[in-house]
Amino acid sequence: MISSVFDWLSTPANWEGDRGIISQTLTHLEYSLIALVCAALIAVPMGLYIGHTGRGRVVAVSIAGGFRAIPSLGVLFIAVLLLLPRLRGELAFALPSLIVLVILAIPPILSGVYAGIAEVDPAARDAAKGMGMTGSQVLWQVEVPNALPLMFSGMRSAMLQIIATATIAAVVGLGGLGRFLIDGQATRDYDEMAGGALLVAALALLVDFVFGLVQRFVVSPGLTKTA
């Protein structure tokens, strides 16, 4: 079984072409990144605002909790049903998939940003104000740099979930690594299915590794090294 999965993975023909592994991996990555950026565009400003002002904490907590409880497949089908009559072509399927991924990614990003800012040492924030920083200087020069570790863990866990769930796009006929799972199931090609699952996991690990590198580069050593 394992060796036949390996055979599937090592067959050059499976990698080539616009339905091959490389092309589907890129598509998968593309969906995932678009979803992450959209989710971040919504969740980061919200988290910054709530963390900085302390206002709307309840909203943050309920969004983070409530969104997590939403079933992804359910949202996908409802969104397709609602959007299909209004949109044409691939977009009618791509947009619902995107919505699902964005909804999925908002809670971890929001709580990472909000908690990161809220947990900045009050003495540092107080000092920033006391030195004569304006509100936005306090936010960008002190709160955000100190919140980066938690912001990154939020982003990373969002990205892992997105990559795992982006397979869902294949359910409504779009590309990505999910194709191998769906197509494999349809044709009872279990090697293809298992190979696809392995590829999703490998992609997730790889992307997380890259995020980790960026994090090490961006986060101040003062927050990680104390010895």
Binding site: D121, A124, M131, G132, V142, N146
Partner: peptide, 30 residues
């Protein structure tokens, strides 16, 4: 307030340094 505070040196009760900045950069704040 911000201008007033920039003109006044302020030593906070428990130092309140910025953990993400070096000592030099902390001191350069004002």
């Amino acid at each position: 307030p911000a201008e007033l505070r920039r003109s006044i040196g302020y030593v906070i009760q428990h130092a309140g340094l910025f953990p993400h900045r070096t000592v030099l950069s902390n001191v350069q704040t004002v």
